[in-house]
Simulated scan of single mutants.
Amino acid sequence: MSKKICYVTTIAPTLQTFVLPTAEYLHKNGDYDITLICDHNENFKNMIPDYMKYRPVNMERGIDLTFIRIIYHLYKIFKEEQFDIVQYSTPNASLYTAIAAFLARINVRLYAQWGIYYVGSSGLKRKIFKVIEKIVCSLSTAIQPDSYGNLEFSLSEGLYSQSKGSVIWNGSACGIDLERFDIQNKAQWRQEVFNELDLPPDSIIVGFVGRINRDKGIYELLQAMQQVISTNHKVVLLLIGDFEEKALEGTELYQWSLDCPNVLYCGRKMDIEKYYASMDIFALPSYREGFGMVVIEAQALGVPTIVTNIPGPTDAMVESKTGLTIPVKNTEKLVEAVERLIEDKEFRDYLSNNSIDFVKEKFEANEFRRQVLNDRNRLIQKSK
């Protein structure tokens, strides 16, 4: 008899990036019926396999005063379908789904804790979102952060008991497809990007991939690179991702980044693996992360990483073996790390070679999916 699992996130790209490949694996190898719930997105609807059900429910990011209607809509779907597992992630979707699934008496309410929103916040905002996080955790029957660092942080914060929390294999939300991020293609892809961006062949590329906003440490990254580029004109900062907020606009730093030919805003890229291949150094000076998939994506293509010493990214690399860690919001240490990797090519090559082996051993996608299948079967059996 087929088992029924429903995945809920706020927006479609989260499902597309982190859920679809694993959901396909569960269907083909574990006889799972799949239902997907997120905002209305025609492109997403048209690209998912025919055997998956798509139930659009709009859940705006931020405070949505229609939350009661949203919870009721989800509740009706859950009562109708009686899923064996409802899995949810992202802040708004997790709160609404946890409440609705609890009211619908879904046996396995699985919170995929891919980041803890209040980390990096302070004052009243931190208190409010910590309360919300506790509500979601209390209504869930199982909680799976995507890194051991975030599991340890959650336990220390009293968000849930040790018996509720677990991490799949070595962490991450989905593992990494090493056929897509194929190191054998690195030289070719690097040349293609250099040609596309008209970069001098001796350029040293420092890259960033993600939402371009304050929480990702973009302000500190621009500050650091302003210093680095002023003394080394071969260095180019490659920024890949959507510009999400206007916090930088109007500042002298942002204007400098627009005027500087060594800073390139490239927007979101579907063939992101090619852009990683063009990088010599990858920097993620984030304030908070669930895991930091971009860190293992970069390392899969042999790119040494610089990350802040926060739960998540520090689980996705090994200090002084695949990359370097720095304190949060510390421009000076970021400058030091970037300049060290620029100046010491032998050390950079050492980190690069270790990175490739590390990702292959710890985060290969097919093994990750096999572990997920075993875990989902275990959760269902345990709930009976």
Rank of each mutant, 00 (worst) to 15 (best):
I34Y: 06
D177G: 09
F153S: 01
L222C: 10
K4D: 02
I168R: 08
G165T: 05
G62W: 05
T10V: 00
N185C: 02
Q223T: 03
V206A: 06
I85M: 04
E60S: 14
L284R: 02
L324P: 00
R180S: 07
V263L: 11
A104P: 10
Y160T: 07
T97A: 00
K274T: 08
S140K: 05
P49M: 08
T231G: 06
I183C: 01
E157W: 05
T231R: 12
S383K: 06
C260A: 14
N58A: 07
L221P: 05
F129N: 06
I11T: 01
D259T: 15
T231W: 06
V359R: 09
I342C: 09
K53A: 15
K79D: 07
N374M: 04
N232M: 09
L284F: 08
C174A: 13
L103P: 10
F282W: 01
S203W: 00
K360D: 01
Y32M: 15
G158S: 08
L239E: 07
Y254F: 14
P13I: 01
I5D: 05
S278F: 01
I37M: 00
V228L: 01
C266Q: 12
V86Y: 01
T9D: 00
R55N: 08
E179Y: 14
D271H: 15
Y276K: 12
V86T: 07
L197W: 03
Y287V: 13
Y276H: 10
P49N: 05
L95I: 02
R370I: 05
E364G: 11
L239A: 13
E364R: 12
S89D: 10
Y160H: 07
P304Y: 14
I5V: 14
N41A: 11
S230W: 00
S163T: 10
L15T: 01
S122V: 13
T9V: 08
M52E: 12
G210M: 00
G302A: 15
V131R: 07
E273L: 02
R376F: 14
D33V: 13
L65C: 07
G165M: 04
Q255Y: 12
R340P: 00
I204H: 05
D242N: 13
S161H: 01
F129Q: 00
V303W: 14
L351H: 02
I143Y: 08
E297F: 11
Y54Q: 12
I106N: 14
